[in-house]
C-alpha cells in the first residue's frame, strides 16, 4: 500500500463512472473518436434488432411481445362488440368508408408506462404526458394509415325477404354491430425509443388478431359468437406502418457560434442517449403487407426540437428508414 501513498489516488475513472458523472462529454468523446462508435457499441445508423413473439397472451384476441434492446413492450388486442343501435350518432352516409374506423372509435389504443419500466416512471402513477402523447401518436398512425379494413369489423345481417319486397330485389344487408378493438400496450422495460417498439408491437399484435365468427340472431335480437376456433377469421392489415426514430446529439448552444456546432444523428437512441438529445425525428413508412418490396410511401415525418435536421438530413433518414422497414417486415414475416 506504500506504493499507493506515493502516487496518490488515481485520476482515471472506470467508464461507468465517467458516464454517470459527465454523460455529455462521455458521449461526445465516443462520437469524436477516429472510428466513432456509440457507447452501446452500435454504429451511428445502426438500429437494434427486434425480437418479436406473438400469441403469448391466451385470453386476448391477438397479442405480441416485442423486445428491442432493453426496451420491452407487450401488446394485447381485445375485441368487444358495439351494437349499431347503441351508437348515439350514426355516421352520415357521405362519410368515406375508410374513415369509419376513426369516426366510430373502433380502434382504441392505450399505452401504459407507469409499470416501473424505468426510474422516471413510477408504478401506479397517472399517465405522464409522454405516455399520453405516445398513445395519441399510435392512434394517429393507425387511423391515418387506414391499415384496418372497416369491413373486417362489421357484423352484418342479411334481412329475410318480406312480401312487400319486389321479387327481383337483392336481399338487404345491414350492419347490426361492429367489433371494437381495444389495444392495450404495456411497456415492461424502457431503454429509449418507446414509440418504435410500441408501434411494432401493435402491428404484430394486429396481424395476430383473430376475431370469432359473430352473427345477429333475430330471435334473441342479439349478437352470438361461435366458440369454434376454426370459424374465427384473422384480421387482414391492408398496409403495414413501421416507425423509425432518430435522435440528434449536438454541441450547439446559444452561447456559441452557429458554425462551431457539431451534430450527430443517432438511429434508434437508447435511454442514455435520449436524455442527452433534444432533437428527434420520427419517420413512419407505410407499405403493403407482403414481405416483397411493394410500394412504400411516407406516412408521417415528425421532427421537433433543435435545428440540425433540415431537408437533406431528413432525406438521409428517410432512406435509412426504408431499409429499416424492409428489415422489420422480414422479421415479422419470418415468424
Amino acid at each position: 500500500m506504500a506504493n499507493d501513498a506515493e502516487t496518490g489516488p488515481g485520476l482515471t475513472f472506470p467508464q461507468d463512472t465517467f458516464a454517470k458523472l459527465t454523460p455529455r462529454p462521455y458521449l461526445l468523446a465516443h462520437l469524436k473518436h477516429k472510428t466513432p462508435v456509440r457507447p452501446n457499441g452500435r454504429q451511428q445508423n445502426e438500429f437494434r434488432q427486434p425480437t418479436i413473439n406473438t400469441g403469448s397472451l391466451t385470453h386476448s384476441n391477438g397479442s405480441a411481445v416485442v423486445r428491442v434492446g432493453d426496451t420491452a413492450v407487450v401488446c394485447g388486442v381485445r375485441g368487444e362488440i358495439l351494437l349499431a343501435s347503441d351508437i348515439p350518432h350514426p355516421p352520415s352516409d357521405d362519410l368515406e368508408e375508410q374513415d369509419l374506423v376513426e369516426e366510430l372509435g373502433l380502434v382504441v389504443p392505450n399505452l401504459e408506462l407507469s409499470t416501473g419500466c424505468s426510474p422516471a416512471h413510477i408504478p401506479g402513477n397517472p399517465p405522464t404526458s409522454l405516455a399520453q402523447s405516445l398513445s395519441y401518436r399510435i392512434s394517429a398512425v393507425l387511423h391515418d394509415s387506414h391499415c384496418i379494413n372497416p369491413d373486417d369489423l362489421r357484423i352484418n345481417y342479411t334481412e329475410p325477404k318480406t312480401e312487400d319486397d319486389l321479387p327481383d330485389e337483392p336481399p338487404k344487408e345491414v350492419t347490426k354491430a361492429y367489433w371494437t378493438l381495444y389495444i392495450d400496450i404495456l411497456c415492461l422495460a424502457l431503454d429509449g425509443n418507446a414509440f418504435d417498439a410500441a408501434l411494432l408491437a401493435v402491428t404484430a399484435a394486429l396481424r395476430d388478431t383473430t376475431l370469432p365468427k359473430a352473427w345477429w340472431d333475430p330471435d334473441r335480437e342479439s349478437i352470438l359468437c361461435s366458440p369454434v376456433v376454426s370459424d374465427s377469421r384473422s384480421l387482414r392489415l391492408s398496409t403495414m406502418p413501421v416507425a423509425s426514430s432518430f435522435a440528434v446529439f449536438s454541441t450547439a448552444s446559444h452561447l456559441k457560434k452557429r458554425e462551431e456546432a457539431q451534430s450527430w444523428i443517432l438511429a434508434d437512441a437508447d435511454g442514455f442517449e435520449e436524455e442527452l438529445c433534444d432533437e428527434t425525428l420520427t419517420v413512419v413508412l407505410n407499405s403493403g403487407p407482403s414481405t416483397g418490396s411493394g410500394t412504400t410511401s411516407i406516412l408521417k415525418i415528425e421532427k421537433t426540437g433543435g435545428t440540425y435536421i433540415g431537408k437533406d438530413v431528413t432525406d438521409l433518414c428517410v432512406r435509412q428508414a426504408s431499409k429499416r422497414t424492409s428489415d422489420i417486415k422480414t422479421a415479422l414475416g419470418n415468424r
Binding site: 394517429a140 391515418d144 425525428l281 407505410n286 410511401s297 411516407i298 406516412l299 408521417k300 415525418i301 415528425e302 421532427k303 421537433t304 433543435g306 435545428t307 435536421i309 433540415g310 431537408k311 431528413t314
Partner: peptide, 11 residues
C-alpha cells in the same frame, strides 16, 4: 433552420 416538422398523409 428547420425547427418543427409535422407531416402526415400519403406522400
Amino acid at each position: 433552420d428547420q425547427i418543427l416538422t409535422q407531416s402526415s398523409g400519403d406522400l
